[in-house]
């Protein structure tokens, strides 16, 4: 069981870390944020419907990713606000569904999946699907590497040169929705997006080089998920919160280290000319 959970943590952490890098570079963070909460609302609906939360989460995330992905090119200026509107809607739906489900189940395994994640939730078939998604995403990146690179370099220029930016954005949102729905059982619905955003945010604090950021984001995603899982197992804490706290601690540490380094460099620059003048 622990080996399965460790493998799921590594795969989902790595997959979400990589996706997070592309989401940030494509500037669709808010869109994917609302997709993550669509998955949460879907999982919460399963509590009332009595179905498997993974399937309902997957269905709502994919349908919503398709909808927002097709709609957003038509409303480029309003898409951020619209995404935030959907974010509120899905949160409200999730809370409503939890309220409508039997309150006595709050401590049961099914509700823990929606709220704080569970080690027990990982099964072999779900790990296979998660790994399959990682393989598919890696294949997609390899196949369209140059077009994606052109978009990362300059999105508007790539669009002007005939690259189908909207299609790649939609594909990325669909992969995000799928990865979120699959990782949701491990971390819980309210914390799943930390797997997406914290690794890339940390990578930008460590390096300014885009290629290094991508490698760092994947590595940090996989390692923080694994470390969080270990902390959860050793201290008997909720797995989602443990992963989120680990990755947030790393992000804050990287941010503090970067701030100190920059201030030290600035102080050195300020003092250097005056020393030269004295000499």
């Amino acid at each position: 069981m622990l080996t399965l959970a460790a493998a799921a943590a590594l795969v989902s952490g790595g997959l979400c870390g990589t996706l997070g890098y592309y989401i940030q570079r494509f500037k669709i963070t808010t869109l994917s944020f609302s997709v993550a909460h669509a998955a949460l609302a879907g999982a919460a609906t399963a509590l009332v419907a009595g179905t498997d939360p993974t399937y309902t989460a997957l269905a709502t995330a994919v349908v919503f990713a398709l909808t927002i992905g097709l709609l957003s090119p038509k409303i480029p200026h309003e898409r951020e606000l619209l995404s935030l509107g959907f974010f509120s809607l899905f949160n409200a739906l999730a809370v409503l569904m939890i309220y409508l489900s039997n309150v006595y189940v709050l401590s049961s395994a099914s509700i823990s999946v929606v709220l704080w994640g569970s080690l027990l939730a990982v099964t072999k078939p779900k790990l296979v699907v998660l790994t399959g998604t990682l393989v598919l995403f890696t294949a997609y990146l390899a196949l369209y590497r140059k077009q994606i690179d052109a978009i990362l370099f300059d999105k508007k220029l790539a669009e002007a040169e005939g690259i189908n930016v909207n299609l790649h954005t939609l594909t990325l949102l669909l992969f995000s929705g799928t990865a979120i729905a699959l990782a949701l059982k491990l971390t819980g619905g309210f914390l799943v997006f930390t797997l997406l955003y914290n690794p890339v945010a940390t990578s930008t604090k460590i390096s300014k080089n885009a290629r290094k950021q991508q490698i760092l984001s994947t590595t940090i995603g996989a390692l923080t998920a694994l470390t969080g899982l270990a902390i959860s197992y050793l201290l008997d804490l909720p797995v989602g919160a443990s992963i989120a706290l680990t990755s947030t601690t790393l992000l804050l540490t990287a941010h503090t280290a970067k701030t100190i380094t920059e201030k030290t460099q600035l102080t050195k620059l300020k003092t250097t000319p005056s020393q030269q003048t004295t000499k």
């Binding site: 140059k146 077009q147 690179d149 052109a150 370099f153 300059d154 508007k156 220029l157 790539a158 669009e159 002007a160 040169e161 005939g162 690259i163 300014k208 080089n209 885009a210 290629r211």
Partner: peptide
């Protein structure tokens, strides 16, 4: 659009941009 070229007004890249000039040109031929 694939038969056209475009040079945007806001082209400046930050000092940490790691793409080389060669790569930047090659990306137009993908």
């Amino acid at each position: 659009r694939r038969k056209c070229s475009y040079v945007p007004q806001d082209f400046m890249k930050p000092p940490y941009e790691s793409y080389t000039a060669r790569q930047a040109i090659e990306l137009g031929l993908v």
